[in-house]
């Protein structure tokens, strides 16, 4: 009798379902951290202390989600002894959950800076930092999409595009730093507020870097290639 359409799940079907659930958890977690970055930057721009505090409070949920994903990964490795593409998928998910958790911490850091700035008058209108934030969040979304696709061509294309975007974020970060330095030189009293904004810009720049780490993991999952920035290691031949 054909197995197609069987209502009795095989071990493999259960495993596939668990892998699908793992990816769904990652997508949900990614949504949480995208929202956290968005909320943290908006709260900074609008000087909304309450919203900043909410970002800080909600980071616990992100941390908890990461631990649950880690537990799922360990359980799958223990139970299924995965091989080949399955193993790469689980290991990549484990790494990506860690990257997302760090991005959550950057959002929390931005929110804490917003609260520290409090009701001090704005140093300058925030234009480039929110732009960096939009780009970084967009990179994060696309890196996750690449991971979910498991398509080597899609991942390679995404990797090239994201690298260009990352360069653009780096350029904006350099511009923000230069602008803030000018303000400090013009009036040393600006130093404290300029430093706060530099921390914010640094955190946003790191979000983009983490998105690059995620696309590297997507590449590993799809192709088995282990890459970090410009460093690549070959598979052993002996």
């Amino acid at each position: 009798m054909s197995e197609q359409g069987s209502i009795i799940p095989t071990g493999r079907q259960d495993f596939d379902r668990e892998l699908g659930r793992l990816e769904a958890e990652l997508i949900l977690m990614s949504g949480l951290v995208e929202q956290a970055i968005f909320n943290a930057l908006n709260a900074l721009k609008n000087r909304d202390i309450e919203r900043s505090q909410k970002v800080i409070d909600e980071d616990d949920h992100i941390d908890k989600t990461e631990l649950e994903i880690e537990r799922s990964c360990v359980e799958l490795i223990r139970r299924e002894a995965p091989m080949a593409g399955d193993l790469r998928r689980i290991i990549s998910a484990l790494h990506i959950a860690g990257e997302l958790e760090r991005i959550g911490d950057y959002a929390e850091g931005i929110a804490k800076i917003s609260i520290t700035i409090g009701d001090q008058p704005p140093l300058k209108e925030l234009i480039d930092i929110p732009r960096m934030g939009d780009m970084a969040v967009n990179m994060l979304k696309r890196s996750l999409e690449a991971f979910i696709s498991r398509d080597p061509d899609h991942v390679r294309t995404a990797s090239v595009e994201l690298e260009k975007d990352d360069d653009e974020v780096d350029d904006l970060y350099a511009k923000v730093q230069a602008d803030l330095m000018e303000l400090v030189k013009a009036a040393p009293d600006n130093a404290e507020r300029a430093t706060y904004l530099m921390w914010v810009a640094h955190n946003v720049e790191r979000v983009a870097d983490r998105a690059m780490n995620i696309v590297e993991r997507a590449l590993y999952q799809a192709t088995g290639e282990l890459v970090s920035g410009t460093t690549q290691i070959e598979m052993s031949t002996e």
């Binding site: 493999r12 495993f15 080949a84 598979m235």
Partner: peptide, 20 residues
Amino acid sequence: TNEQVFGNPKDERTEAYVTG
């Protein structure tokens, strides 16, 4: 090598076999 066959097989049939 083990790393290649069990970690990143080239043949789709190998991938299907080692992943059950």
